[in-house]
C-alpha cells in the first residue's frame, strides 16, 4: 500500500511483465510498419518518417529484450485486485465511460451530478451524503468555471432542446 501510495514501483512478476511487454512490442511493430511508409526526407533523417522509424525500431528492440530476457531476479508486484475489489475498479471505469458518452447529451450538471451520486455510493458513501456531494459539486464547478473563469461549459443537447422549445 505504501509503495503504491508513493508511486514507487515494486519489482514485477516476470510472467506479467513479459505479457505486457509482448503487447507493447506488438503495438511497436504496428507503429514501426506505419513509420516505414513515411518519407525519410532529403538529406536522410529530415523527413516526417525519420524519427518515428528510429523510435519504432528501438521500441520493438527494447520490447523484445524485456519480453525474452531472463528475469529471475524479479519478485511479485503484489496481489491484483480480485472479486469485489476488481469489480469496484471496473465499475468506476464504466462510470467514466458513461460520463463521456452522456456529457454531450445531458450536459455538465446532470452528468456530473449522476456520476457523483454513483461514484460516492461506489466509494461507500451513505445515500444522503452522496446526494449532497452530487448537488454541491456541480454548483461549485459552475461558480468556479462559468462565473469565475468565464469558461464555456457543455450544457448538453437535452438542455438546449428544452430551452429551445
Amino acid at each position: 500500500m505504501v509503495e503504491a501510495a508513493i508511486g514507487v514501483d515494486v519489482p514485477s512478476a516476470p510472467k506479467i511483465v513479459r505479457s505486457a511487454s509482448l503487447i507493447l512490442t506488438a503495438l511497436g511493430l504496428f507503429y514501426l510498419h506505419q513509420a516505414s511508409m513515411m518519407p525519410l526526407g532529403d538529406p536522410p533523417g529530415t523527413g516526417i518518417g525519420a524519427v518515428p522509424l528510429m523510435v519504432g525500431t528501438c521500441w520493438v528492440a527494447f520490447g523484445l529484450y524485456v519480453t525474452i530476457r531472463n528475469q529471475s531476479g524479479l519478485v511479485d508486484s503484489g496481489p491484483w485486485p480480485k472479486g469485489r475489489a476488481a469489480l469496484r475498479a471496473l465499475y468506476a471505469l464504466l462510470l467514466c465511460v458513461v460520463y463521456i458518452v452522456g456529457l454531450p447529451f445531458l450536459g455538465i450538471f446532470i452528468t456530473t451530478g449522476v456520476f457523483l451520486v454513483l461514484m460516492a455510493r461506489l466509494a461507500g458513501a451513505p445515500s444522503t451524503s452522496a446526494l449532497v456531494v452530487a448537488v454541491m459539486t456541480p454548483i461549485a464547478f459552475w461558480v468556479i468555471f462559468s462565473l469565475g473563469l468565464k469558461v464555456s461549459l457543455p450544457y448538453g443537447s437535452l438542455l438546449a432542446a428544452v430551452l429551445g422549445s
Binding site: 467514466c96 460520463y99 463521456i100 456529457l103 455538465i108 456530473t112 456520476f115 457523483l116 461514484m119 460516492a120 466509494a123 461507500g124 458513501a125 451524503s129 452522496a130 456531494v133 452530487a134 459539486t137 456541480p138 464547478f141 468555471f145 461549459l153
Partner: peptide
C-alpha cells in the same frame, strides 16, 4: 475528509 467526497470531486474536476 470522507474518501468518497474526495474521490468523486477529483474525478469530476479532472473531467471538467
Amino acid at each position: 475528509v470522507p474518501q468518497y467526497a474526495l474521490i468523486g470531486f477529483i474525478f469530476a474536476i479532472s473531467f471538467i
